[in-house]
Design a protein around this nucleic acid. Structure first.
Lengths: 116, 116
DNA sequence: CTAACGTATCAGTGGATAATGATATGACAG
DNA sequence: CTGTCATATCATTATCCACTGATACGTTAG
């Protein structure tokens, strides 16, 4: 096992699984729509529902996932619960992805592996 | 429609689906293992199989997805087919994710939404 | 030409999950 | 206290996808 073997660092099950989970959180159009709604403003669930056109239980479920994963944070305000991005880097990561897409969008679009 | 409203740019259905697809390509531990194997070197399928412990058809299938999505490129060399990352930014994106994980790993790890 | 090897494709299977409708929990108004 | 509203949870369903084994394709060696 030489140091140049990448597996030493990167193939540790924990790291790989964490990365997969993070990307998975970002791999759903519904969740990306929700995150987009939160990039500019803090919003409550109803606003997100109206903004995205998704069902309320569906939005709540996605928000729970995003909250558990630390991608969004929330605070109660009366009967409302207001959500916002937990970290600037969440938006940064999405923006970096967009930059990559600017080069490879053709390929990604043509990819037949996922029906989304 | 003010310029500061990010949704103007980002919520276009096409953009959302592309982003979801890109992240989806990165959301699988097997594909992340394959990409890790390709960060340092160009490798053929057998080497990747040996490196990852995945089955050969499984690797080929993932490579097809990654190739279609423009995340890896390939060139034939005799009977072998050598794969490499298509763009430096693929590795960059993964590294950015790791930086975010350094802050939110606890949350991601605790996220119960995905059983991976 | 034929055998051996590397890679890609195909069909089948099991497990995971996104969406929905119904319902529970919790907070405020009157 | 009671009704109403905002949010969260539950159970169900339908779909999707990662993996496996068998096999096809293509190339090189002898």
């Amino acid at each position: 096992m030489t140091a140049q073997n990448i597996q030493d660092d990167l193939s540790a099950p924990d790291t790989l699984d964490l990365r997969a989970k993070l990307f998975r959180g970002l791999s759903d159009p519904s969740r990306l729509t929700i995150l987009d709604a939160l990039v500019s403003d803090e919003r409550n669930v109803q606003e997100i529902v109206g903004h995205t056109g998704l069902g309320q239980p569906n939005v709540s479920n996605h928000l729970r996932c995003l909250l558990e994963c630390g991608l969004v944070s929330r605070r109660s305000k009366g009967r409302f619960v207001r959500y916002r991005l937990a970290d600037r880097r969440v938006a940064d990561l999405i923006r970096d992805a967009d930059q990559l897409l600017a080069s490879t969008a053709n390929g990604v679009d043509a990819c037949q592996s996922y029906t989304d």
